[in-house]
Amino acid sequence: MQLDRKSLDRLLNLSDDQLRMLLRRLLSENGVDPGTVPLEQLNMGKLREALRGATDEDIAGYMALLSALGNRGGAGPQ
């Protein structure tokens, strides 16, 4: 899968609960304790706004950064 506009639309189609659940899972899978991130306080409206406004360049930048961080062993406990 390539993270692209279609993927962002899928994210936008999720309900708030599903989106929070996804974020928890993403945090957990990347070695971050979800308990340390107050997702309950997350402004979902602004998150959706950011997702809607993300450009292809933004997406490519995020993916490159994530890959770089992952390659450097920053993906948390194995």
């Binding site: 899968m1 993270l3 993927s7 996804l22 899972r25 993403l26 899978e29 990347n30 993916m63």
Partner: peptide, 8 residues
């Protein structure tokens, strides 16, 4: 990351 996101 993309694969992980797809799976989740």
């Amino acid at each position: 990351p993309a694969t992980l996101l797809e799976r989740l």
